[in-house]
Design a binder for these strands. Structure first.
Lengths: 200, 200
DNA sequence: CCAGATATGTAGTGTTCGCTACAGATGTGG
DNA sequence: CCACATCTGTAGCGAACACTACATATCTGG
């Protein structure tokens, strides 16, 4: 039995284009017509490869978080909890205003509220954000064990906090805030982590 | 000349229902059918009264911000910048998880990204959020003048920061975080404002 | 009671949505 | 070269979308 005609487009390259459309217009705001045009393919190719619109989103999210996790590994490699927060938030200030991408964060712009039939999309995004929060929490647990964070500090709360700030920065970026404004937010935000750190 | 048949529904009451639909499903996720059903009216009444879907959203936003501003007046009445931040973020933790309303904040859930033809909706929401930020900034400017905040502090940056945190909390609330989790975020966040305050 | 004005309910309008049937093209295994 | 399998482009499916024409109902001013 034959293996059939090979696909003529690069799935990962097409995903990058789809990712950008979802990023800019959100899940519901992105149309199949816009997606197929950006991906350079026709609807049947899209559906054969990704199942449906939601499947395409999940594939794009997988790709997004994969790239993001590589970056996060570098973030949590910072020597102290304070430096982790600073590296993360300062990096986010730059990444979310990078003109190479749509402003903000796909995990937020993708859709915080959706209509009937797409209710699980916001949860899908939330689950990906939770991964980053877990990574931060683990890092802060270590920082507490190392005596970097105070014994009274709450690593989970700190991780939630840093995650919340980055989400807020993402929304600000998508509505026009420039890198400098976001860096100011990051600078202030880091001081809360500093307050939970042992003096040195 | 006669004044015509009077409308049979309460516009403000209907707006409250529309507000809830936009809040829960976002601008694009909310359909006219859902809106009219929740408002208890038929499409022609909606269009005669609010122009179109976007006009209805703006009217709902006006009502939302009006109620919110009353609350904000109480927030900025707190004696210190630190207390302003605490009162605001703790209040937001409760309000955004109040089961009487959809979770999160309409000014975020309404839509951070929209499709072609609704591009100005996110900006409309951002403009309303900016009002709150301005109110906070003015309050922090005063706090600095009063010697409550350090001379080196940046009131505008602080306001942006508090605003960013509240937006982030809103997204977390909409994706299932409970009040306690948000309060933890608020508790940490306040410490950054504290770090900018004069010791007393 | 009448004329003008506005609101309401019914029943649609045209458009766009996500998605797919189908025929032709292009590959593999025998 | 032939079955078979998979991809591709054209063309269009039914459904849902925002919105509205129209007849009717209910008001005010004279």
């Amino acid at each position: 039995m034959g293996m059939g005609r090979p696909r003529e487009f690069d799935a990962e390259l097409a995903l990058d284009q789809a990712m950008e459309v979802f990023w800019r217009h959100g899940y519901e705001g992105a149309t199949i017509a816009q997606l197929t045009e950006a991906m350079g393919i026709n609807p049947p190719s899209l559906y054969a490869c990704f199942g449906n619109k939601e499947g395409l989103l999940k594939a794009a999210l997988d790709r997004y978080t994969k790239l993001r996790n590589v970056w996060m590994d570098g973030v949590v490699a910072a020597p102290t909890a304070r430096d982790v927060a600073e590296r993360m938030l300062m990096g986010i200030a730059e990444k979310q205003t990078d003109p190479a991408n749509p402003p903000g964060c796909l995990l937020v712009q993708g859709g915080v509220a959706c209509g009937t039939g797409s209710e699980n999309v916001p949860f899908e995004l939330a689950a990906r954000r939770a991964q980053n929060e877990d990574q931060l929490r683990d890092r802060f647990v270590r920082a507490k064990a190392e005596g970097d964070l105070k014994p009274t500090s709450d690593p989970a709360a700190l991780a939630r906090y840093v995650s919340a700030v980055s989400v807020g920065m993402g929304v600000m970026a998508s509505s026009g805030s420039d890198c400098e404004a976001l860096r100011q937010v990051a600078t202030v935000a880091v001081q809360a982590v500093e307050a939970q750190s042992e003096r040195r």
